[in-house]
């Protein structure tokens, strides 16, 4: 697979993750394409159950046994060097050496619940050092120094003391910082942040978002930022992919998304967020109905039952094409089927 351009680190090609359940086939992710560019943040936004977390779990190859993954996930750079032959993560053995060296080394992840990500019986320092010793510095003493520095870098006061504390001794915000320190200790080229601030309070969330942004600029890390909060997306991301029912329905840069959204779902979503600058006591524009359960779905645009602009006989008769209506602006909707070149 040829590298599309110099700054692309990772490319997803028609990635599908299907879960083979007792009740039927659950298409959690159904044909996702995107690229991760160096030093840029891709925001993935969508409602619960749209498959945004499963997508990144596929990159990390942490799927349950009954999860079937197809398509290609190309990794073009490893340990800061360009690979002659890109690695297809989708085809790797989920317990093999290669994926283990990528996990935590080249790609790191921050989770929503920092308490669940840390083991309660080991100190913060030991857990961060484990990553460092595995990927960066095998010497224990030096690893500890790196660990202290990493904790200092994420703004934890008194890191020499904190390094020997257990997760429950830290507050929620501190724990999230410690997790970021762990994720970034091995200097990964890609950081996946899965709803990292959802469990935090607004003022703490502001601290953590700032921290992630600063660290990203310092290390030129690429970030995949998953969230359901469009406010956070606007703050954090350079490019945005809007997911609905396992598919990316619209992807473009962040400015276009907020000022020139095209897909009916994106537009409805933007209207329905309660922003403070809309005036007082107004009604909300809501999307009717609820997100359908992604099991045994009919062949139609996933949004057509809730869409005000659905065209009868078209939208409910097949999957809409992914169309590039402007350079870099993809929309998956029948309305634009003949308004641009069909993207991949």
């Amino acid at each position: 697979m040829k590298r599309p351009s110099e700054d692309v680190i990772l490319a997803m090609e028609d990635v599908k993750v299907h879960f083979d359940m007792d009740e039927g086939l659950l298409k959690a992710v159904d044909g996702v394409d995107f690229v991760i560019k160096k030093g840029r943040t891709l925001g993935i936004v969508g409602e619960s159950g749209c498959g945004k977390s499963v997508t990144t779990n596929a990159i990390f190859k942490i799927l349950p046994k009954y999860g079937l993954i197809s398509g290609n996930i190309w990794l073009y750079e490893k340990d800061g060097k360009e690979l002659e032959e890109p690695i297809n993560i989708a085809e790797l053995n989920p317990t093999g050496d290669v994926i283990r060296s990528i996990r935590g080394g080249n790609i790191s992840m921050i989770f929503q619940e920092p308490m669940k990500a840390f083991s309660p019986v080991h100190t913060i320092g030991n857990q961060i050092m484990e990553t460092i010793m595995l990927h960066v510095e095998p010497d224990k003493k030096k690893a500890r120094e790196i660990c202290v520095e990493a904790l200092r870098a994420v703004g934890i006061s008194n890191p020499e003391q904190r390094v020997d504390e257990y997760p429950h001794q830290l507050s929620g915000g501190m724990r999230q910082r410690a997790m970021i320190a762990m994720a970034l200790a091995s200097k990964p080229s890609i950081l996946i942040a899965d709803e990292p601030t959802t469990a935090l309070d607004v003022t703490i969330q502001a601290q953590v978002l700032d921290l992630i942004n600063n660290l990203k600029h310092e290390n030129n890390t690429s970030v995949i930022f998953i969230t359901h909060d469009l406010g956070v997306i606007a703050e954090m991301s350079d490019d945005v992919a809007v997911m609905y029912l396992g598919k990316i329905v619209e992807s473009c840069d962040v400015d276009t998304l907020f000022y020139n959204p095209q897909h009916p779902y994106t537009r409805a979503l933007l209207k329905s967020i309660p922003t403070a600058d809309k005036q007082h006591k107004g009604r909300f524009e809501s999307i009717r109905g609820t997100v359908p359960y992604a099991m045994n779905l009919p062949v139609q645009c996933g949004f057509c039952d809730r869409c005000d602009e659905a065209i009868k006989g078209v939208c409910d008769k097949g999957y809409p094409p992914n169309v590039e209506i402007e350079p870099g602006h993809f929309v998956r909707c029948f309305k634009f089927a003949d308004k641009g070149t069909e993207g991949k």
């Binding site: 607004v202 003022t203 969330q205 502001a206 978002l209 909060d229 469009l230 406010g231 956070v232 997306i233 606007a234 703050e235 962040v254 400015d255 998304l257 907020f258 000022y259 933007l270 967020i273 922003t275 403070a276 600058d277």
Partner: peptide, 8 residues
């Protein structure tokens, strides 16, 4: 502290 949904 509330993030505003406006990238500009």
């Amino acid at each position: 502290a509330k993030p505003v949904a406006d990238p500009r």
